[in-house]
């Protein structure tokens, strides 16, 4: 009776997550896949086929945007890691007690504001009549107004800014668990700062680096607001393209196919990243 009762409890506790997985993740994706392999042959007439996927590969705009989105997301992830690592190291290793908490909190505070508002903040700074442009003119460094919005650099700035917290938090956690005496032992045995970073700090922080990178990459790849607002019309992002298919063109079939390709892309990149860094997903998520 006892084991039956505890079994029931186990399944009851498991039920919400199973439901969530089934109803909100698996079912929609099956639906998405079914729609994506449907081809419209006439009004309300559909046939199964891979036409939508063929369209993607035949139309350069689609797969170029696809590749561009992937490359820029990877670049944004790398940039976030390069910027986030020193911040996390400083917070985790070089500060104590109150200062640590305060700094950590200061990293979080911007995230209490919605992403939309934060992105508008960047627009105020970067646009032609914005703060930076005016300041440069006032200082006499430029003659006329400068437009810094609507290019890839602006998107990059926005992506890094939106996701840096998700890099810093896992990094701080893993670096915090690195015993200071290991770093001291490294110095004591004749290691230089660079050697210690390479041989001791980074191997220890690897689970944090990988989980941070996965989250940041996913966020960048699936970001919709930042590329649209900061990149303008010329800077295409794959999510924007999916949106267009669904909402503007009412082409749900192609939209589904594109959505499915995005899922495959992100899975492939994460898989490659884990293989390259010799980490397993279970280990990464377990430790970070």
């Amino acid at each position: 009776m006892v084991s039956d009762g505890s079994k029931l409890g186990f399944y009851l506790l498991l039920a919400p997550i199973l439901l969530w997985l089934a109803v909100l993740i698996i079912l929609p994706h099956i639906g998405l896949f079914v729609v994506s392999i449907s081809e419209r042959v006439g009004p309300r007439e559909y046939e199964y086929g891979i036409g939508n996927y063929v369209t993607f590969f035949e139309e350069p705009l689609y797969w170029r945007t696809f590749a561009r989105t992937a490359i820029m997301s990877i670049a944004a992830t790398a940039l976030t890691l390069i910027l986030g690592f020193p911040i996390a190291y400083y917070i985790a290793k070089l500060t104590r007690g109150r200062t640590k908490t305060t700094l950590f909190l200061m990293c979080m505070i911007p995230f209490w504001v919605s992403e939309l508002v934060r992105t508008f903040g960047w627009m105020i700074l970067l646009r032609e009549t914005g703060v930076i442009s005016n300041a440069l003119q006032y200082l006499g460094l430029v003659d006329g107004p400068v437009e810094m919005l609507y290019n890839d650099a602006a998107i990059m700035v926005g992506l890094v800014y939106t996701s840096i917290l998700f890099m810093v938090v896992p990094l701080v956690t893993t670096l915090d668990s690195l015993d200071d005496s290991l770093i001291e032992a490294g110095y004591d045995l004749g290691g230089t700062g660079a050697a210690i970073l390479r041989e001791i700090v980074i191997p220890h922080a690897m689970p944090g680096i990988v989980s941070g990178c996965i989250v940041v990459f996913m966020l960048s790849l699936g970001n919709y607001l930042t590329p649209i607002l900061l990149g303008g019309k010329d800077s295409l992002w794959f999510t924007g393209m999916i949106y267009t298919q669904f909402i503007t063109r009412f082409n749900w079939e192609l939209g589904s196919a594109l959505g499915f390709l995005l899922l495959l892309l992100s899975s492939a990149v994460v898989f490659l990243g884990l293989k390259l860094s010799r980490q397993s997903l279970a280990e990464t998520m377990g430790r970070a």
Binding site: D179, S181, L182, E184, A185, L189, E199
Partner: peptide
Amino acid sequence: SMVFQHLALFPTM
């Protein structure tokens, strides 16, 4: 060279 209190062997190696 120093032998640390908790030895400080590098666990990643």
